[in-house]
Structures are given as structure tokens and as C-alpha cells.
Amino acid sequence: MDIGILNVVTYVPLLGALWILFFFDDPKNIRYGATFFAAGASIRPLPAMRFFNSDGRATGFRRSA
């Protein structure tokens, strides 16, 4: 799995936290913003599941670059 996915998944919530901290004030925006950033981190790893399919192709660890 390339460097992109893991770093995205890990740091998108952090990015979201900072964004909300500095740019959002209205509660509704905050809530939806938080959901958006969390969802972004949730949906991103899904394609990675194809590396771990039924014939168990991935062995041990997949390292980032």
C-alpha cells in the first residue's frame, strides 16, 4: 500500500481538527465538518481491503515508502 493512504487516514482527522478550530464557529458547521473529516478518514481505507483478499496475497506488513 503506498504512502498515501496511511498518511491520509491518519492525518485527515488532525487536519479536520485544525480546520474546525480556526475556521468554524457555527455549531451546525462544526458538527457537519467533523462528520465530513471523520467520514473522509473512514472511506479512504476501504479500497485498501483489496490488498487482503481471499487468497491472502498480502503477507506480513505492507510498508510505506
Binding site: V9, R31, A38, S42, P45, L46, R62, R63, S64
Partner: peptide, 28 residues
Amino acid sequence: YDFGIDGIALLLILLTTFMGLIAIWSSF
């Protein structure tokens, strides 16, 4: 800066992101 996962970590990450979303949504 060593980042990498295997199946076990991936499953736990999926759990984390899913439950994180649930937690945020439940806090509304």
C-alpha cells in the same frame, strides 16, 4: 517515520474509523 499495516492493523483501523464516525454522529 515507519508507517505500515497488515491485516490485523487494517481491521482495527476500519473499526476505528467506523466507530469514530458513529461517535461523532451520536454526539449531535
